[in-house]
Design a binder for these strands. Structure first.
Lengths: 193, 193
DNA sequence: GATCACATGTAACTAGTTACATGATTAA
DNA sequence: TTAATCATGTAACTAGTTACATGTGATC
């Protein structure tokens, strides 16, 4: 069910074709909220159309079909957003899982993954900060409008990841140093737990 | 494929039965990395056993079967962790999606959701901080050992969410105030975009 | 001896991915 | 005219959820 609300939300921001939506999923929203492929998007758009939650506003070249969210669609989306999130549909985040399991790697391996993680996260933060500045200018609002909230959520999340990666690297480095000095003293190897 | 590595990681921390694993998924790891139900866990454990990545170490009362990760299992997990994460298996996070779409709600509604979000996140931070302190004491290490990394990732993530929710509330409040003062001046209602 | 938590299993369904397939338009 | 990109579609598969089903051991 989440897919349809993700689609409605994207269409509410701006009318789009299935192809557009696939791109937008792969882009921003797919990175930390919800992802979907075109093979799932097209049938769902047809279903939403049948149910009156979206409507076709344009048929362009190459069979391009542009959809818009209807009033009924907005109502449905709002109802879903306000509904008590009782069923916390289980999270599936492969990237987070990798970080979660870092402890099983040797310190040097883990440090390499952490370096990549931190660099990637800082890159994302920069991208999103530029996007936020553009939004502030475009909307003439310090908050960047509705989309600004979203972008800031991304900034906060990636910054937290980067800061954690930095902290974790320092801990691993310190532990490795400790291991080395122990090894120097005792003449015995070391290992992770 | 992610499920099996999540299982191997959990078993590496400590041997467990399928029932135990289901609980641990529902608990920590399921909250921000990967979730799984028992109906998926049991068959996967049998497959992993056939492939030699886990082994049965105990059969207790009530058919309870305890598994342990084998050396082969550890090798497989490490290989997966070190593999370039080319295929960024799409994120599925319903909670993040809701936050992502907050902009479509009326300010008062959004504020209510943000309040709940902030309170929930701060609660999680407190829980995890207590867990981290316990880990520090148990491991005698400032980093809390391998599990400490994981717990800190959770702390950083939830703190970021709480901070964002606070910021977003202030923005919405300010926008609402602005709307009200405009309405006072112009005698006309307001609406979100 | 009833009830509850423990512990596992399976069948039917829904969601999501991969791979294959087709045709239209644009740019070289 | 060839290749690349746009744009949609479907079939076969894998992953994951929900619901049903069964029996065990502890506690009251």
């Amino acid at each position: 069910m989440a897919l349809r609300y993700a689609i409605l939300g994207l269409l509410l921001d701006r009318p789009s074709s299935g192809y557009d939506l696939a791109g937008r999923f792969a882009d921003v929203i797919g990175a930390y909220a919800w992802d979907a492929k075109h093979s799932q998007i097209y049938p769902e758009l047809r279903r939403l159309d049948q149910e009156g939650l979206v409507e076709v506003v344009d048929r362009g070249a190459r069979r391009r079909t542009t959809y818009r969210c209807t009033g009924e669609g907005l109502t449905a989306l709002r109802a879903w957003l306000m509904a008590a999130p009782t069923s916390t549909g289980g999270v599936k985040n492969e990237h987070a899982l990798r970080l979660f399991l870092l402890g099983v790697l040797e310190p040097e391996e883990a440090l390499e993954v952490l370096r990549q993680t931190e660099a990637g996260a800082r890159g994302k933060v920069q991208d999103l900060e530029a996007e936020f500045a553009a939004l502030q200018e475009r909307t003439g609002s310090a908050s960047g409008g509705p989309l600004g909230l979203t972008v800031q959520l991304g900034i906060h999340s990636f910054r937290a990841t980067a800061q954690w990666a930095r902290w974790a690297s320092e801990q691993l480095g310190a532990d490795a140093d400790l291991d080395r000095s122990r090894a120097d003293q005792c003449g015995s190897g070391s290992s992770a737990g």
